[in-house]
Structure formats: structure tokens, C-alpha cells
Design a protein around this nucleic acid. Structure first.
Length: 747
DNA sequence: GTCGTCCCGGGTTCC
DNA sequence: CCGGGACGAC
């Protein structure tokens, strides 16, 4: 949105001080209001370092910084812009010693947390079915509200496990000088209670602004209240209809009850939407209107009309994906649409696979946002564990992770001996390993001692590299070399190993950028902190790509063209039961999620569903999403039904285990299996308005195909099925090649 | 101690 | 379907 601010936006931007609640619907320019308000405050003479702006993601923080720099230039330097976690990490680096943290504390991410809990479950000898996840959920749910997990009583057997494991969990974190994500915030709350530092924190910022306030949890709200307790200059911006993080502790009540907590708060509603057509907005309003527990806003636009929303169902997820890809190809070719203006949204990451495959077949470059994140990759986590161990010899979790990675002959038995030694003498695992190497532990063979020594030497060598003043990038390179990771991966030589090597190279580049940015200030500790707080770092989505992402990721973004896929009951809305929330509450959140999804679209929205979908290898019959029912028919463009509708199966036989079923044929292609309406390789949408534009089906021997790199060729052999179909193709330019079918298009 | 096979359980997602 | 853990064979 460009141009002048409207009166409500202006009132919010120029609000003189005191508590301010901005209730801003989707597409009403709330980020713009926040940015302008910060600029306004600086213009009014507030120093940048007296302003704290909290965003929900690092990405949002980066964008906000960028926009402020555009407006203010260097006058924006020194602003505190970041997520709750990055702000708290910064505060703790400075004052953490008051709450028992040394400067080089490390942050445990999700994976670290799971591994530690797993270890503790094992040590405790718990046999019953208790997963690390179920425990961490219990820990986090309590900590999100500032409560002690062991004091929550549900009457379920897991209570006992929580009582047993949680204290040990916190103990181990303390021993490793580590915090989990929740501790990061809770420790700052502890600081707030400190006689000396509490008042200091309360006056550190003259203005506190919080974006996406509906997503804050109780601890975050308490933090904000403290930071603004003296000045009371607190601006919160949010939309209760976009609260989609209830499952991880968000309390939309923070937003709904804000003016009860601050009776003198000014409340400003932003209801004019500048993003979407009135058709899209009407649909979004109709969906969200079914929710009971909401503050109530009426979004409107002066953008009249617009295309109807297209709604189509297909035989299976492949047919759905194919039609989405084909339609995007058509948008690009015939309407000159840039791929970057198109987004594909879905409820779960698992849906991305077929979409990605079909896009490639139509020679459209997909870019999956989120998904398997860079820092969750095994090789990256391994390299980071080495670095962590170098930075902090007490990092037992890092030791456990990499003591035998790559395999150097140190097995479970040896590690168990090291653990026993550590427990007996109150040592870190690394120091215990040194003791074992020195021969202070009985019953360890010289061979084992030698192997363990080689690992200790790697760590010591790396510490020497750091002490010699190596840059962080150099230290990463040394990790990859000295650990033997590079050698191992190169020896493997598989495409997968090569990808892992590429990822490690990307990590070196990232460290190199970090060095460039911070110069001599850039320490290993700081690098570890930053990477712990940046989940993605992979989301460089530039270039002519079509972006695919979950609806959660898409919040805050907008696109001219949006394809919303998998609108099926059970998938979207997800009807999986969630403990801690009633069915009705869960459904309301799903509805808000649908509202977020629909309002991402500026001009055109296409909604699709599959009638059958493979879920974990099992084929399920899917009914259309109940949210479709909520959308006024006048907003929808329904495809024409084919002239001879096939009979709806009354009964679906379960697929016999182990026996592959003959792929059935889609509508209009001869026979079909009436017990299986899933169509085969030659998939056809059940409804298809563009039947004649569909590419010919299958990659039969003799078919002419084209490949992005090899050009055009002829299929000479086909093997495998589905995504694993491998074709031998004769390319006149390069000869015979075996290629995956998904990298081919028909020509 | 390592490597292979089988079985089980898993969804959304930020920091 | 996928990856991780458990278990047995070398």
C-alpha cells in the first residue's frame, strides 16, 4: 500500500504516548503503521536506542529494520528491533550473570532439547511409553505461562515422568551453561525481579512496540508489562482473527483484554483493507464470521469486484498438483505473470512434495519456504555441535552428539564409561573422556583409549585454532576438516553426500558473512547464539521462483495470485485432537488459519482439494473442507461438471497389504476400478475446466520428452512408478541418460 | 563396534 | 511414505 495514511493510521502513528492498542485486520497496513510510528518517534526526538520494537520472526525484524533504514537512513541505527528471544539473549549477554549465566551461555534448540530429554528418559530407565516430545510439550506448556511444569497435575501417568525428568533437565541445562527457548525469556523475568536490575530494565526503553500481539504468550506479556511499567508507552498491534499459534502457548486474550489491563489505553481499529479484491475479502469475512470468540471487526475495501474464487476438486493429490502447475504455466505464458507473484499455500509440509514434482515437470522453479530448515540438517547440527564443544567444554549434549561422528569406533559402551566417570567426579563428559584417555579408569583397553584420545585431540586442536585468533569462518573450515566430516562425505560420493558437503560449504559462507559484518567483534559464541535463534537462514527466495509454504509461514505476506491446496476436511481444517484445547477451540483456530490463508491473496485465489489422498502410504477418501460451505456461493466460480459423471463409490475397499493394486484409470479413459477412485499415473481431475489443455499422459516408451539441461529426447525405457519413475532417454545432443521422470516434461 | 533389517510412529511452527 | 530406534549378524 502506498500513499497517504488514512485518519486511523495517522492517529496510531502520531499517538502521543501511553498505552495504545491497534486492532488491525489483515491487509490494513499495520506493519506500515508500526514503521511510521517508530519513524515519527525518532523525528520527535526520541533516541533510537530508547525504542524497542518486538516482532514475531527474525524475518519480520529484518524487514522492519530495512524499511526504517529507507525512511530514516543512519538515524535508525541503534534501534532495538528483534524477536522476544533475540532481545532477551542480548539482555542476558549483558546482565545474565545476575541470574547465574556466564557470558558464553548457549541456547538449546528444539532438537537439542529432544535429545537431552531422550537421554534423561534412558538414564531414568523409564520403560513405559513416554516420548521426549510428550515431555517437552508438558515442560513448554507450563513454562509458556511462567509455571513450574512439575506442579501441573493432570492425573495422567505422565505427571510422574514430568516430576522425575524436569528437575534433571534443568540441572543439565545449568551444568552446560545452557538455556532453552523458554528459559531465555524466563531468565529475563528473573532479572526483572532483581532489586537492582529490575528498575533498570523498566526504564531502559522509552517506547515499547509489539507486533503480532495476539501471538504473545503470558511470559512475553509479563515481560512487556515490566519493560513499559514506568513509561507506560506501550504500543501493541495485532489481529485476534489471525491468532494461529495457540498450540504453542499464544494467548489471544492478551490482545482481547489489553484495554482491561490498561484502562486508559487508546484503542484504534484499522478496518480498511488495501490488499484484496472485495470478492476475496467477502469470502474471508464469511469464514471468520463463524467464530464466536472474537473481538469483531468488519474489514472493507473500496477495491470493487475482482475475479471469482476458483474452487476445484481432483481425483487425487497428484491430479491436484498437476492442475495447479498447469494453471501457473498458463498464467506465466499467456498472461505474462511473474512466477514471483504466485504462491502455493497448504496446511502441512507433507503436501509440498507432489506440488514440487509437478511444477518441475512444467518447468517452473519451485522454492519451498520452511520445510526442512538449514540448521536442522544433520551435517549442520554436527558441525555446530563441534563448535559448541569448542566454545564450551561443558557442552555435554554436543559431546554426546559428535563423539562418534563421523564413526571413529567409539560406541555406546565406551560412552557409558565416560558418563560414569563424569557422574562420579562431577566432570563434564569431555573432561571425563580426558581422564579415560589418561588411563584413570579401569577396564578400558588401550585401543579404546586411543580412539577416545583422537576425539579429544580434535577438540583441543580446534580450541588451539580459536586461540590463535582464527576467524569464525576459519574455525568452521577447521571443524569440517579435523573432525573428518569432509573426508567421510567425500568418500561416500553419493549425490546426498555431495549435498551435505554443499550445506557445510554454505555454513562456511554464512560464517564468512558473519565475520565480514562484525569484524573482530565476531566471536564464536556470538555466532552460535545467532544461529540458534535463526531457524531458517535458508529462505533466500529470490529469483524467478514460485514459492510454496504452509499457511503459518505465509502469515504477514501477500501475493497477487494464491493457490490454496488441500482444502479437505481433516486436513484443513486439521481435526487431529490436541490436548489442552477443546475441539471447538481447535476448530476456531483452524478457521483463523483459513482466514489468514484467504487474505494472503491480492487479486486471484484458487482453492483446490483432492478426493483421495495418500497419507503415510495409506489412501484416504477426503471430503471437501467445511470452510468451503461458509463461503457465499456468489464468490465462487465452480467448474463445469463433465457430461457423464461417473458413479460415486458407495464403499471403498481397504487396499490389501503388500499387493500392489493395478492403477485405475481416471474419468473418460476407459475402465476404472469402482472400489478405488484414485486415479493412476495418467491422472485426470475429477472436474476439469481445461480438459483440452491438459498435457498428454504418461511417459510411454517412444514418447518425446524434454529436459531442462539435456534438451529434447525420446524415451527408450521406463522403470519404477510414481515419483521414482526412472526413464532411459535418448537425447540426440548428449546420448542416453537415465533420468527421474519428474525432471522431464513432455514436448 | 558397525552395519543391515525390521518395526513403529509421526501433522502444523516460531524462537 | 519417511526416519529413527531396536535388534541381530558379522
Amino acid at each position: 500500500m502506498r500513499g497517504a495514511l488514512n485518519p486511523e493510521q495517522r492517529a496510531a502513528v502520531e499517538h502521543p504516548g501511553g498505552p495504545l492498542l491497534v486492532l488491525a485486520g489483515a491487509g490494513t497496513g499495520k506493519t506500515r503503521v508500526l514503521v511510521h510510528r517508530i519513524a515519527y518517534l525518532i523525528e520527535a526526538g526520541v533516541s533510537p536506542w530508547e525504542i524497542l520494537a518486538v516482532t514475531f520472526t527474525n524475518k519480520a525484524a529484518g524487514e522492519m529494520r530495512e524499511r526504517l533504514h529507507q525512511i530514516l537512513g543512519d538515524r535508525s541505527r541503534g534501534l532495538w528491533v528483534g524477536t522476544f528471544h533475540s532481545i532477551c539473549a542480548r539482555l542476558l549477554r549483558r546482565w545474565g550473570e545476575a541470574v547465574g549465566l556466564t557470558r558464553s551461555f548457549v541456547i538449546f534448540d528444539d532438537d537439542d532439547q529432544q535429545r537431552l530429554i531422550q537421554r534423561l528418559i534412558k538414564d531414568a530407565g523409564i520403560d513405559e511409553q513416554v516420548t521426549p516430545r510428550s515431555l517437552s510439550t508438558r515442560f513448554d506448556r507450563a513454562k509458556n505461562r511462567g509455571l513450574d511444569p512439575t506442579r501441573i497435575i493432570t492425573g495422567l501417568p505422565i505427571d510422574d515422568h514430568v516430576r522425575l525428568i524436569y528437575p534433571r533437565y534443568q540441572e543439565q541445562l545449568a551444568r552446560e551453561n545452557a538455556v532453552d527457548f523458554n528459559d531465555l525469556l524466563l531468565k529475563v523475568l528473573d532479572l526483572a525481579r532483581d532489586a537492582e536490575l529490575g528498575p533498570k530494565l523498566a526504564t531502559l526503553f522509552r517506547h515499547v512496540l509489539v507486533d503480532e500481539f495476539q501471538d504473545t504468550n503470558l511470559v512475553q506479556y509479563a515481560l512487556v508489562r515490566h519493560l513499559a511499567s514506568v513509561t507506560r508507552n506501550l504500543t501493541v498491534v495485532g489481529d485476534d482473527d489471525q491468532s494461529i499459534y495457540g498450540w504453542r502457548g499464544a494467548e489471544p486474550r492478551n490482545l482481547l483484554d489489553f484495554d482491561a489491563d490498561f484502562p486508559d489505553a487508546t484503542v484504534i481499529k484499522l478496518e480498511q483493507n488495501y490488499r484484496s479484491t472485495s470478492v476475496i475479502l467477502e469470502a474471508a469475512n464469511a469464514v471468520i464470521d463463524k467464530n464466536v470468540d472474537r473481538r469483531g471487526k468488519a474489514l472493507w475495501t473500496d477495491r470493487g469486484g475482482g475475479d471469482l474464487i476458483e474452487w476445484r476438486q481432483f481425483g487425487d493429490e497428484r491430479g491436484e498438483a498437476m492442475e495447479v502447475a498447469r494453471t501457473i504455466r498458463e498464467l506465466i505464458d499467456e498472461y505474462g505473470v511473474s512466477p514471483r507473484d504466485v504462491a502455493i499455500l497448504y496446511r502441512t509440509n507433507a503436501q509440498s512434495r507432489p506440488l514440487e514434482e509437478q511444477l518441475l515437470r512444467y518447468r517452473i522453479q519451485p522454492k519451498i519456504l520452511g520445510g526442512v530448515l538449514f540448521f536442522e540438517r544433520r551435517e549442520i547440527k554436527d558441525a555446530m555441535a563441534y563448535l559448541r564443544l569448542v566454545s564450551n567444554p561443558a557442552a555435554d549434549s554436543g559431546f554426546e552428539r559428535v563423539v562418534n561422528v563421523p564413526a571413529r569406533g567409539i560406541g555406546e559402551t565406551t560412552v557409558e564409561r565416560v558418563r560414569a566417570q563424569a557422574a562420579a567426579h562431577q566432570l563434564s563428559l569431555l573432561d571425563a573422556a580426558r581422564a579415560v584417555v589418561r588411563g584413570e579408569v579401569a577396564g578400558v583397553t588401550p585401543t579404546v583409549r586411543k580412539k577416545l584420545a583422537s576425539f579429544v585431540d580434535v577438540i583441543d586442536g580446534l580450541a588451539a585454532v580459536r586461540d590463535a585468533g582464527a576467524s569464525v569462518a576459519e574455525q568452521v573450515i577447521q571443524v569440517v576438516e579435523r573432525s573428518g566430516l569432509r573426508e567421510k562425505l567425500e568418500a561416500e560420493g553419493t549425490p546426498e553426500a555431495r549435498e551435505r558437503l554443499d550445506n557445510l560449504a554454505a555454513l562456511v559462507n554464512m560464517a564468512s558473512d558473519f565475520d565480514d559484518e562484525l569484524g573482530s567483534e565476531g566471536t564464536l559464541d556470538l555466532f552460535l547464539e545467532r544461529t540458534a535463534l535463526v531457524a531458517g537462514a535458508d529462505d533466500d527466495d529470490r529469483g524467478e521462483v514460485v514459492r510454496l509454504m504452509t499457511v503459518h509461514i505465509a502469515k504477514g505476506l501477500e501475493f497477487p495470485y494464491v493457490f490454496l491446496c488441500g482444502l479437505e476436511d481433516g486436513l484443513f481444517p486439521s481435526l487431529r485432537e490436541r490436548d489442552g484445547a477443546s475441539e471447538a477451540e481447535a476448530l476456531e483456530e483452524e478457521r483463523r488459519l483459513a482466514y489468514v490463508a484467504i487474505t494472503r491473496a491480492r487479486d486471484k485465489l484458487v482453492m483446490t482439494a483432492a478426493r483421495t489422498r495418500r497419507v503415510w502410504g495409506e489412501i484416504r477418501i477426503q471430503a471437501a473442507s467445511r470452510f468451503i460451505e461458509d463461503i457465499p456461493p456468489s464468490c465462487l466460480a465452480l467448474p463445469v461438471r463433465p457430461p457423464a459423471p461417473r458413479p460415486t463409490p458407495m464403499l471403498v475397499a481397504p487396499r490389501p497389504a503388500g499387493r500392489p493394486q493395478r492403477p485405475s484409470r481416471g474419468f473418460g479413459r476407459g475402465s476404472w476400478d469402482e472400489h478405488d477412485q484414485r486415479s493412476g499415473d495418467d491422472d485426470v481431475p475429477v472436474y476439469d475446466v481445461h480438459a483440452d489443455l491438459r498435457p498428454s499422459d504418461g511417459f510411454a516408451v517412444g514418447a518425446e520428452v524434454s529436459h531442462a539441461a539435456f534438451g529434447t529426447g525420446r524415451v527408450v525405457e521406463a522403470r519404477g512408478s510414481g515419483k521414482d519413475t526412472r526413464l532411459t532417454v535418448d537425447f540426440p545432443s548428449v546420448g542416453r541418460k537415465v533420468v527421474l521422470a519428474r525432471f522431464l516434461a513432455r514436448s
